[in-house]
Nucleic acid binder design. Structure first.
Lengths: 216, 216
DNA sequence: GTCTATAGCCGGATAGAC
DNA sequence: GTCTATCCGGCTATAGAC
């Protein structure tokens, strides 16, 4: 793992009850951190969301920071493991459509994860300093590589790949991070699956055409 | 004004000292709220950033919420007054280029404003409920109108205008809100003006081409 | 393993001296 | 108009009963 903050969870036997309670607490913490950020979140609120006594949280997690790190680690692991990269062997149009669709599905299914991460970065990412180290740059370069190759092969226009990646990230995450604003703009109470699919269509169309992909 | 929360500042004479101190405090508060969010921010930190004793803050602003509302109001006023809409009379390519350029300049010049607003929305916007009312939907519809007209005139492809607006918002704000992640990805300490200009170019190119604008 | 009680600190807010 | 001193509530964290 790129980001190796030691976790006390590895030290103790993972009993059935322990595992279950830790999962409940992490889910509750994720919601609380998404709403109030690291500093604004309280162990009290987390306990209430988890429907457990407050000191129970302290029994399973050393302190607030530790719990927060666990939540962030969970989120990053989820994305790293479940989100497929752009498929460099496929045609650009197909690969981009698949990638955008998948990112939008993540925005729809894990809105809290995206929000916790976003708030941490907005705060200047003081608790992710280790994560955003030199390795991160290498990891990022591996993401841009596919665009460079497509450009060399004349399959897309030659535009700076880094900014393409930022565009893909920003436009897709926006639908989970700014959902409140978007639904207010659309006059809806909440966005549903169809809204996300419509957005996915528009994004695919604009990005694929915008990059100059030759479609059949 | 669309969003009419009464301010105590209107009630008192705006002396020279008062005006100056309030400006200092609001700037300090903006930075503090950007870093720690509403709940996480402390009056103590704001006082330190403003280099004033804590109770001075309470003298000028009734309480933390009031101060926060003032900061948010300032931000929204700034955007409403200084950000031009898309020019429907111009050619789509020119209008879009002008709009994207201006939004990116705002991201570069007022990164804190964008962050405070973003955090509020990520939190579910409980302190902007009044702002995101029915009027907001009308205001938003006036933004999408220009795309509808261009589509009717055959000047751009017929794609759902709302999602075009969201794409413009998300892709430009991303550079100020997620600056830490972006600079880490690019291996820089901080983004400079040239980075923003490069990003502007890429965004203009992809969006204009992606919407099927006929360029000369 | 679980919960109550509480220590100890820090937060927002105010009273009142200057 | 400015600042010191302070109240009180809520916060993290822990000690210790069960």
């Amino acid at each position: 793992m790129k980001w190796d903050i030691a976790s006390h969870r590895d030290d103790k036997p993972a009993g059935r009850i322990r595992q279950k309670n830790e999962d409940i607490i992490i889910a509750a913490a994720e919601a609380e951190f998404a709403h109030n950020g690291f500093k604004g979140a309280t162990m009290n609120n987390i306990a209430q969301r988890a429907d457990l006594p407050k000191s129970n949280i302290h029994y399973y997690f050393k302190n607030k920071l530790q719990l927060y790190i666990e939540v962030l680690t969970n989120i990053i692991d989820l994305w790293d493991n479940a989100l497929n990269d752009l498929d460099g062997d496929a045609e650009p149009g197909d690969a981009l459509r698949a990638y955008i669709t998948e990112k939008m599905r993540f925005s729809y299914e894990y809105p809290l994860a995206s929000k916790v991460f976003a708030k941490e970065i907005l705060s200047g990412a003081p608790r992710l300093a280790e994560y955003f180290n030199d390795d991160y740059q290498d990891w990022f370069n591996s993401k841009t590589h596919v665009f460079r190759r497509w450009a060399e092969q004349g399959k897309i226009d030659p535009v700076e790949p880094a900014h393409i990646v930022f565009l893909l990230w920003s436009s897709t995450q926006h639908y989970s991070d700014f959902e409140v604003q978007i639904s207010a703009a659309l006059g809806k109470k909440k966005l549903n699956k169809k809204d996300f699919e419509e957005a996915t269509d528009v994004l695919c169309k604009i990005v694929i055409r915008g990059l100059g992909v030759k479609e059949d």
